[in-house]
Amino acid sequence: MNDLWLPQTVNSIEPSASWVTVFVANTFALLLFGLQHSIMARPYFKSWLTRFIDPSIERSTYVLATAVAIAGMCYLWVPFGSVIWQVESEMGVYVIRGIAVFGWLFLFLATFMLNHFELLGLRQTFDPLQGKAAPVAAFKTAGFYKIVRHPIQTGILIGVWAIPVSTASHVVFAAGISAYIFIGLYFEEQDLIKEFGDTYLDYMQRVKRVVPFIV
């Protein structure tokens, strides 16, 4: 995504494909991730899914499906278009690369400020195997969660936009991911309000969603 180490990315300059191919393939790629990530996160889908699998592996199943959807989205994406912006200064390139690294590191650290292994569904799967009770959902606002309500998404937004050379393909991809983040967070927060009630409503009043002091 940040054009490092990979032979082809969404930002690659490729021989022009037909606009029909570009539109169909890239729309499907974004929907593949967006629909999977949103639908599988909703309580009604979780209730349906746990009719067929043990509830202890529901979260890990969701995480695995998300990884497959992300891989599929990147594989199916058809690069297109010319360069929109390009930073010529070597120092500028290093600064922007540094911002991107900060974004991805921000995301990674945020996962540990709740419970990294619970987020990935590993704790829910392995605790029952060891005779421990399944973890109960608790409202936590540690670390970055005191600054923004969704630091993982903040890290993604920084990471996908902080790039020194961008084609039209990358702009559309990053815009699609950004749009999904804000649409997905709306539905996620509706679920959180139902789960935590006034506690979460108060949190929404005190802490911005993804950008400190702004939004």
Rank of each mutant, 00 (worst) to 15 (best):
F173D: 01
F28T: 15
V101Q: 10
E188V: 01
L30Q: 07
R149W: 00
R59I: 01
V101F: 14
L122E: 04
G155A: 07
T154Q: 02
I193L: 05
Y62R: 07
E88K: 10
E189D: 05
G143C: 07
L119F: 15
I183V: 12
K194D: 15
F196G: 08
M91A: 15
I70K: 02
V215W: 13
A71S: 11
Y145N: 07
S82D: 14
Q130N: 13
G176Q: 08
A142N: 15
Q190T: 11
V87I: 14
I39Y: 12
I156W: 10
R149E: 02
K140E: 12
A168S: 09
F173H: 01
G81D: 02
Y94F: 13
Y44C: 13
G103P: 08
G131A: 09
E58Y: 10
L6M: 13
A142K: 14
M40L: 13
A65P: 05
W5P: 01
K132F: 09
T27Y: 02
V22E: 05
F213N: 05
A17Y: 10
K146N: 09
S60F: 06
A168D: 03
M204V: 06
V165W: 02
I193F: 00
Y62E: 02
T167R: 06
V22N: 09
L107F: 15
L64S: 02
G72R: 01
F196S: 10
L201W: 04
I158N: 03
A41R: 07
R149H: 03
P7S: 09
R97T: 11
T167F: 03
K208Q: 01
F23S: 11
V95C: 11
L201I: 06
L35Y: 12
A29K: 11
Y186Q: 05
P79I: 04
F45Q: 10
L64T: 09
F139K: 09
V22M: 08
L107E: 13
E58M: 03
T154R: 00
L76F: 11
I13L: 14
L76T: 11
L107K: 06
K132G: 03
V22K: 11
T167L: 04
F144S: 10
Q8D: 07
H37A: 04
T21N: 14
W19Y: 14
P43E: 13
L32W: 08
L122K: 03
D198L: 00
F117T: 09
F144D: 05
Y186S: 07
T141I: 09
I193P: 05
A29W: 03
V165S: 07
E118Y: 12
V10M: 10
G98F: 06
A179D: 02
A175C: 08
G92W: 08
I214A: 03
S166E: 02
G131R: 05
F144G: 06
A133V: 05
V215S: 08
T61Y: 06
Q36V: 02
N2G: 12
L119S: 12
E14C: 10
E90T: 14
T154S: 15
G121E: 06
Q8W: 12
A69Q: 00
L6T: 12
R42V: 02
I53N: 13
G121N: 06
G121T: 03
V22F: 03
V10H: 05
T61V: 04
Y200T: 00
